[in-house]
């Protein structure tokens, strides 16, 4: 995993010294950084005559978090399923790290999926397997030796603060715990792209907050590119105005953007009737005049 000092590359340092700027320049020039992590080019998809996506184009840059907003049934989960190659579009192109995966076979997709982590709407834990086996799933499939597996599983469960639940079965967990185990499972193997499908739906505010913090931590400390699907405005608030950093004591702390730093690595897109009706920063979203958007933000 990448270390904390990496966060500079994604956070605009307003009062920067020269050294920091050079750092950014260097990072931007590396080829893996210039290629977007995910790119949609005019993607269309219908299910039985019903248009779900109608010409969707967007890019997720390296280390960027893209928040996708939209009503339920608006095609948000479908978008994520397309990136994972669980579905194929009717037309258009989908690129992952510059690689056109649109026509990849299941076999080829397996390789691409190695670098992706997916957090499903309800967790989608394997209920015949324990928490340990769930998180270890990917490593067990790759026949990694048990000692390494256990170390990695513990590390991941510590990341989501659930090490105590290691021997439990999914049915014994609360909704928030299931979601966190889902996150731990998705993060095994250090994916560089992580997708969250409504990870906070149906959770109480403090638990939802914890999950948003995990996403922020991944973005700022682990240099992960991510897609965060939600329809909850407070998630948007957290993700687009706070950043994670490590204090002198080595603890992860969350700070508000402001004088010192302004977040440039989080953007919002809004889907409506299969089209993107908004794309930009959260500040712009709040200023938008489109009645659909204002209604979505304020609920009336």
């Amino acid at each position: 995993m990448l270390s904390a000092d990496n966060k500079r590359s994604k956070i605009d340092v307003q009062e920067s010294e020269l050294g920091a700027t050079a750092d950014i320049q260097e990072a931007v020039d590396a080829p893996s950084r210039t290629l977007p992590a995910i790119e949609f080019r005019d993607v269309h998809l219908s299910f039985d005559d019903k248009k779900i996506l109608n010409g969707v184009s967007f890019t997720v840059r390296r280390g960027e978090t893209k928040i996708i907003l939209g009503r339920s049934g608006g095609g948000k989960s479908t978008t994520i399923r397309l990136i994972l190659g669980l579905l194929k579009p009717d037309s258009g192109q989908i690129l992952v790290d510059g690689e056109d995966i649109t026509h990849y076979s299941e076999q080829e997709m397996m390789r691409v999926r190695q670098k992706m982590g997916m957090v499903f709407q309800e967790g989608a834990l394997f209920d015949s397997l324990s928490v340990y086996e769930n998180v270890a799933y990917r490593l067990h499939e790759q026949k990694v030796d048990e000692e390494t597996v256990e170390k990695e599983v513990r590390r991941m469960l510590r990341f989501v603060d659930l090490e105590d639940a290691i021997d439990k079965m999914p049915s014994e967990l609360s909704g928030g715990m299931r979601r966190r185990v889902g996150i731990a499972r998705a993060l095994v193997g250090d994916p560089t792209i992580v997708m969250f499908d409504e990870p906070t739906a149906g959770l109480d505010p403090p638990t939802a907050r914890t999950i948003c913090e995990l996403a922020i931590k991944l973005r700022d400390l682990e240099d992960v590119s991510s897609i965060f699907v939600t329809h909850e405005m407070n998630n948007l608030e957290y993700l687009s105005s706070e950043y994670a950093t490590v204090n002198d004591a080595g603890e992860v702390i969350y700070e508000m953007e402001g004088e010192k730093l302004c977040l440039i690595n989080t953007e919002v897109i809004m889907l409506r009737d299969g089209q993107i009706i908004f794309s930009g920063k959260d500040e712009q979203l709040r200023k938008a005049e489109d009645p659909y958007i204002t209604k979505f933000i304020r609920g009336k």
Partner: peptide, 14 residues
Amino acid sequence: VSQQIDAMRALGTD
């Protein structure tokens, strides 16, 4: 229906 099959595919298993 609980998306475990999708999860399996996403985790690289056929």
